[in-house]
Amino acid sequence: MKSVAAIITTAVLAGFSQACSTPGNYVVTFYGYPDNSPPGPGTAHNCGGRNFKAGGTGTYADPITIATAPGELNVCEIVYLPLLTKYGRYEDDCAQCTTDWKNGQPHIDIWTGSNSVNGGQNQINCEDNLTFGGRYSIVRNPPTNYGVDTTPLFVAPNTCNTNHVYPSNPAHC
């Protein structure tokens, strides 16, 4: 029979492993249907019943797809993105993110749009306009009740919602 101290210690350690954290210094870029590899909505990981297709509105229940280097986040991990006031989930891999991660630079690539419509050059231009440069924090193991902006980043044929990006939003737990 376990002692009360052992049970409490186990519970405390389990709580620490799930604690919210705000790692920073992430390069944040954007990708979509036309510049995915190969072009289309395909993802490397099947998360949340999406059947290997990128998507999401940014809520905790429907996080936007993010790509990164294998090992940088846990597959299907949900994080909060203060830059966008959206939740994101690691569902895809990113070649440039992998190179950056191997060189000590965290990097995430965020899905911009439809999983059925190729936005072509307009979507790529939007992705470039959404990429402000700088380095940003994310929230790992976030609470489920942060406020979100579900406005799509790109809507074909040519709507780019750069006014729904918040570079000065701080990350906090």
Rank of each mutant, 00 (worst) to 15 (best):
Y80N: 06
C94L: 04
T144W: 07
I78Y: 05
D109P: 00
T159P: 01
R135A: 14
N141S: 10
G133F: 03
G88C: 00
Y90A: 11
V79H: 05
C173A: 07
I108F: 06
Y33K: 08
N158G: 11
L81E: 05
P38K: 02
Y90T: 09
Y33I: 01
S37K: 11
G56R: 09
G58E: 06
I7P: 04
D100H: 09
T150N: 05
A69C: 07
D109R: 05
I66C: 01
G119H: 07
V4Y: 14
T159C: 02
G42N: 14
F30C: 04
T99P: 04
E77R: 04
L130T: 03
P63Y: 03
I64H: 01
D35S: 09
V117N: 09
P39D: 02
A67H: 02
R135N: 13
I138H: 00
K53R: 15
K86I: 00
G71R: 08
G71K: 08
P38T: 00
T98R: 11
I108R: 01
W111H: 05
G88V: 06
T43A: 04
R89G: 04
S3A: 08
N125E: 03
V139K: 05
I110A: 01
V27Q: 15
D62H: 09
N169I: 10
C160I: 08
D35P: 04
I78A: 02
I138F: 00
L84T: 02
T144I: 12
L84K: 05
Q96E: 13
P142A: 12
A11W: 03
G88R: 08
V12N: 08
Q18G: 14
N118I: 07
V148P: 02
P170C: 02
T10Q: 15
S3C: 11
P82A: 09
G133D: 07
G56I: 08
R50I: 06
D92M: 10
V117S: 09
A69S: 11
C173P: 00
T29N: 00
V165Y: 02
P170R: 09
